[in-house]
């Protein structure tokens, strides 16, 4: 059964259409990227999935049904901007919010202790939320999102404002979720994060679908006819290369469309060029987005 199925959802506020005929689905065990620039409609889409706001038309189902109390217990949501009760302690906050997800206090306390140990924050369990640093607060928020073992986890800009150490910690924990067979939706405007983590993506702009599907497939589709080369030795004339563009740290070779990268590599090796790096240039999601957004407008 699909974890999430969104079909033809439309939502407008006052005079602008925030989400316009959006459809996608997410399966269990899948890391799904919901990407797009700020204001593209990502958060509105998530809020409709959470039943925090209702769509003007279209339908959202979570585990095959409309969101109700039982399904709410099966999902974890971390909103983009975060806050907790400032005066409560770390443990109190986790246990209270876990109890609202149907956990009893004892198992919530046990699980919280385990997760705090895993994130090396057990010492802070009696600290008040207001005493924590921003990054620590964010990790606590993540613990609250996953403590009740949800089958669907929705993370809105999970890495915003995190330092590299905490970013890595969080990435590891998110990957674990997928490995445990959970459906994870990662919403972000930082497209490089998605490239690293996600299996499939939905790219939206101005509330509309730009790209939707398997990430590697999409990238293959946008693969250009150029290679990136960094090496030592005289390159000389390379058959099939129509132009050379020197870049920082490498040279981009533009192929003529009939020559394959493999042929170029063979030629270079036969010429005795010492190769440090040779790769088929795939555009980043960022570049794909810019290309697509430019096309649409």
């Amino acid at each position: 059964m699909l974890a999430v199925e969104v079909s033809h959802v439309v939502k407008s506020f006052a005079d602008n259409v925030a989400v316009d005929d959006l459809s996608f689905s997410v399966a269990p065990g899948e890391m799904f990227g919901l990407i797009g620039p700020n204001g593209a409609g990502k958060t509105t889409t998530i809020r409709m999935m959470m039943d925090i706001i209702r769509p003007d038309s279209g339908e959202v189902t979570i585990f095959g049904e409309k969101l109700g109390e039982a399904t709410k217990n099966r999902l974890g949501y971390m909103p983009e901007e975060r806050g907790l009760y400032k005066k409560l302690t770390v443990l109190e906050s986790i246990v209270y919010l876990a109890s609202l997800k149907g956990m009893d206090r004892r198992s919530a306390t046990e699980k919280a202790t385990a997760l705090l140990t895993q994130t090396d924050m057990l010492d802070s369990k009696k600290k008040k939320i207001e005493e924590l640093s921003k990054g620590m607060g964010q990790i606590i928020q993540f613990i609250i999102t996953v403590i009740h073992d949800p089958q669907l986890v929705i993370l809105d800009e999970p890495f915003a404002g995190l330092d590299p150490v905490n970013t890595e910690l969080l990435k590891g924990m998110i990957s674990d979720l997928r490995d445990q067979g959970k459906a994870v939706i990662l919403s972000t405007h930082q497209m490089n994060q998605v490239e690293e983590l996600c299996d499939r993506i939905l790219m939206i702009n101005n509330g509309r679908t730009v790209l939707y599907g398997d990430l590697s497939e999409i990238k293959a589709r946008y693969r250009g006819n150029s290679v990136r080369l960094d090496g030592k030795g005289e390159l000389g004339e390379i058959p099939g290369v129509t132009a050379r563009r020197p870049r920082r740290g490498y040279t981009e070779l533009i192929l003529d469309g009939e020559t394959t990268p493999q042929q170029v590599l063979n030629h270079l090796v036969s010429r005795g060029v010492v190769i440090d790096r040779f790769e088929v240039a795939t555009p980043s999601l960022n570049e794909i987005f810019l290309r697509e957004a430019g096309k649409k407008s």
Binding site: M50, D51, E69, P79, E80, G83
Partner: peptide, 17 residues
């Protein structure tokens, strides 16, 4: 007001009605 400002309200509403 605080729950709205901190967006905690969204976490609460993803758990309760």
């Amino acid at each position: 007001g605080d729950e709205k400002e901190s967006r905690l309200i969204e976490v609460l509403l993803s758990s309760v009605s």
